[in-house]
Design a protein around this nucleic acid. Structure first.
Lengths: 263, 263
DNA sequence: GCCGCGCAAG
DNA sequence: CTTGCGCGGC
C-alpha cells in the first residue's frame, strides 16, 4: 500500500511544525504541498529529513505560490511546468521509484483567479482559465499512469460549496470555471477520487475562507482534489480528509487529503 | 512598601503574555511601560485587569512610541506632556492615591535620536537634545515628591556601556547627550536610584541591541532609569534589574527595573 | 534583528 | 483574516 497526501499549507516555513505533526500522525508515503511561499533555499529541508522524508522535489518562488513533493519513497523529479511561461512556481511532477514504481505524481497549484469573475475586468480570471486550457492540452498527450493532486481553486459540483446558488457568481464556483475544469477532466479521463470515495451530495469540503467567521459557521468549499488516470483509480483503496488540522493553532485555510493505493 | 517597575516592552500587544508573566512573578505595585506601540483602543486592558492591575493610564499612539502606567494601587492621571508639540506619545504622569499616596510617577520615553550624532546631519539627534531641554525647564518647576522612570535612551556613566571609548561617538553615549542629561538631573536634583543601589563601576545594563549577537556577547548599555526627588530617594529600600526576561522567548531588547519604597 | 504599517494576494 | 514584502524606526 502506498499513501499519498496533498495539502495547501499557506507558508511551509510558518507551519513546519504542523507539517511535521501531520506526517507523524498520518505517515503518508508522499506529501504534495502547495503555497509553500518560499524559495527552495529557505525550504525547511531539515524538518522533513528528520521526519524520514528524504526524497524531495521543491519548486519554490520568493513570497508567492511554490509547490513541493516530499516522500519516504525514492522519487525522481520529471517535470516542472511553467505552462504560462510567467515564472510562477505552480507545478512539480515526480515519478515514484520504490513502492508504486512508475506512478507519476503531478502536484499543481492552479491560480485563484482574483475576485471578479470576468476576463475583461479582471485579468487574473482570464489567466486562471488560460492556465486550465494549457493543462488540458498537456493532459491530452499523457500516456502514463498518473495521479494529479493539489489546490485546483475550483469547486466543481453543486454540493462542493455550502451554498451553490449564492456562489454561482463567486470565483471558484462559476459555470465557466466548472466547464473549463470539465474539459481538463475529459482530456485524460481523470477520475475524481474525492467523489469516488465520498459520493455527492455528501459534505466534502477542503477549504474555508479566513475572511468569514469560519470557526463557527461551516462555509466550506471543495477546492483541493486528487484525480487519477482511470487505471490508477481502480487501485485506490481509501480516501480521507484530515479536517482536524483546522483545530490546530493558526491553521492553514486548507486541510489535507489522503488516498491509499494498492500499488 | 510600594514597589514600582519600568520596562520598555517594544510592543505590548506582542508581549502581553510576557508582561503577565512578569507581573505574576515580580508583582510590582506599579509598572511603567514604554514603546507600547499601539493606540489605547488596542491596548490589552483585559490582560492587566485579570492580573489585578485595575488602574491604568495609557497614552498610546498608532504604531510608534506610546507609554502606559498600570497599577494595583489606585491612581489618578495628572499629565500627558507633549513637550515638543509633535503628537508623539512619550509621557504620562500619575499620582498614587492608595499606599504611597501623593507620590507622582512620571513615565517617559525619550527619543532615541537616530544614528548620526550630529544636529545638522541628523534632525532626530537635535530633537532628542531639544526634548531633554524642554524636560529640564519643566523639571525646574517641580515641587512635589516625584519619581521619573523610563527609557532615557542615554547611558550617562563610562561604566554604563560595555566599551566607553568605542561608544563615545555612538548615539546614547556621546558627551553632548551625557551633558544634556546632566542638566536635566541638576534641574531638580534627581537621584539616580540605579547607581544608588548598584554603584559604579558595577555592571548594570538594561538594554542589548537586537543587531548584535547579544545572546553570546554582553554588549549592553544602561538606557533605562529610575530617578527620584531627593526626599523620595531616601525612602528607596531596594532596586533590581530583572535580567532573566532576556532568556524568555522573543524578548524585548530592554529588561525591567524594580525599586521598592518605604511609603 | 525586531517591531508596526500599508500593500498585494489568497 | 492571514500571509510575505519593503519600508522606516529603533
Amino acid at each position: 500500500m502506498v499513501s499519498i497526501a496533498t495539502w495547501n499549507i499557506n507558508s511551509v516555513r510558518l507551519r513546519a511544525d504542523q507539517v511535521e505533526r501531520f506526517l507523524r500522525q498520518e505517515a503518508p508515503d508522499v506529501l504534495c504541498l502547495q503555497e509553500i511561499k518560499t524559495e527552495e533555499k529557505h525550504f525547511p529541508h531539515a524538518v522533513f529529513e528528520a521526519a524520514g522524508y528524504a526524497h524531495r522535489a521543491v519548486h519554490g518562488q520568493k513570497g508567492y505560490h511554490g509547490v513541493a513533493t516530499v516522500s519516504r519513497i525514492p522519487l525522481r523529479e520529471v517535470s516542472r511546468h511553467d505552462w504560462q511561461d510567467n515564472g510562477e512556481a505552480r507545478h512539480v511532477g515526480v515519478e515514484l521509484l520504490g513502492p508504486g514504481q512508475g506512478l507519476i505524481v503531478e502536484n499543481v497549484y492552479i491560480p485563484a483567479g482574483g475576485d471578479i469573475p470576468d476576463r475583461e475586468a479582471n485579468p487574473k480570471f482570464g489567466q486562471k482559465l488560460d492556465f486550465l486550457g494549457r493543462m488540458t492540452r498537456w493532459a491530452e498527450a499523457l500516456d502514463r499512469p498518473t495521479l494529479i493532486v493539489g489546490d485546483f481553486n475550483i469547486a466543481p459540483l453543486d454540493c462542493d460549496v455550502y451554498d451553490h446558488k449564492a456562489l454561482l457568481k463567486v470565483v471558484s464556483h462559476t459555470p465557466i470555471e466548472v466547464e473549463t475544469l470539465g474539459q481538463f477532466r475529459d482530456a485524460h479521463g481523470w477520475v475524481d477520487l474525492g467523489r469516488q470515495f465520498i459520493p455527492a451530495p455528501q459534505r466534502n469540503y477542503s477549504w474555508w475562507s479566513y475572511r468569514s467567521y469560519w470557526r463557527d459557521k461551516d462555509q466550506g468549499r471543495r477546492l483541493d482534489h486528487m484525480w487519477a488516470s482511470p487505471d490508477v483509480a481502480t487501485q485506490a483503496r481509501g480516501h480521507r480528509i484530515v479536517e482536524e488540522t483546522r483545530k490546530w493553532d493558526q491553521p492553514s485555510d486548507h486541510v489535507p487529503l489522503i488516498t491509499e493505493f494498492d500499488l
